[in-house]
């Protein structure tokens, strides 16, 4: 465990808390892509199947359970909550997210640490997580104004993987750990946020409302 890793996981957790606070206090999921949230449920279920096969960890296990529970809760709110579901921008959430799943599955089938059920699903979840933000970014681009909580949510969600990159660099030098699959996927994942980061920081410095061109 190093500071980058701890900070990364806390940032990830904070992003989810921000989203839940937004949904619960404003009773609105405006600006949030249900397709991205669906993909996260799939990501966590396929990655954390090892909850059943690996020994419990005082650090990892609670995080895994929280990520699973919160992602399912968010999707539940967006689909079924009487008030919240009416605020969902269905017509702007146009990204064909199913088209992300098949290429990730094919990639995981061929590129994995070990050709076993758990390892292929793990690889699938790493690839799918890298691109899961795309529907959300497309939705934000079509929004004329992005509320603070939504902007902060997406920022924290992107910052988390960027902090993992620092953690991986640290571990490479300090612990000799080499893991190509999450490294390359994490790099792609962070790169997809580049544009968003740019406009987020710009609007923050100019004290303006966030808007993507």
């Amino acid at each position: 465990m190093n500071a980058f890793r701890l900070l990364a996981d806390l940032t990830h957790l904070l992003s989810i808390i921000i989203l839940l606070v937004k949904i619960r206090t404003t009773k609105s999921c405006a600006g949030i892509s249900l397709k991205t949230q669906d993909l996260y449920v799939l990501v966590f279920i396929s990655r954390y199947l090892d909850l059943f096969t690996r020994p419990l960890s005082l650090y990892n296990t609670p995080f895994k359970l929280v990520f699973l529970a919160t992602s399912i809760t968010i999707v539940y709110y967006m689909r079924y909550h009487k008030v919240v579901k009416q605020t969902y921008n269905k017509d702007s959430d146009t990204f064909k997210h199913y088209f992300l799943i098949l290429p990730c599955a094919v990639l995981a089938f061929f590129i994995n640490p070990k050709f076993t059920f758990i390892e292929v699903l793990w690889s699938f979840s790493i690839y799918l997580e890298a691109v899961a933000i795309l529907p959300q970014l497309v939705l934000l681009q079509s929004s004329s104004n992005i509320d603070n909580l939504t902007g902060n949510y997406v920022f924290m969600l992107g910052a988390y993987r960027a902090l993992y990159l620092l953690n991986w660099i640290y571990r490479f030098f300090a612990e000799d750990v080499v893991r190509w699959i999450p490294w390359i996927a994490g790099l792609v994942q962070t790169a997809l946020y580049a544009d968003f980061f740019y406009y987020y920081i710009k609007s923050w410095r100019n004290n303006e409302r966030l808007k993507l061109p």
């Binding site: 690996r54 640490p113 070990k114 080499v178 893991r179 190509w180």
Partner: peptide
């Protein structure tokens, strides 16, 4: 560099 596979991350 051979890939060491340790799944101790989230």
């Amino acid at each position: 560099v051979p890939s060491k596979h340790v799944k101790d991350e989230l």
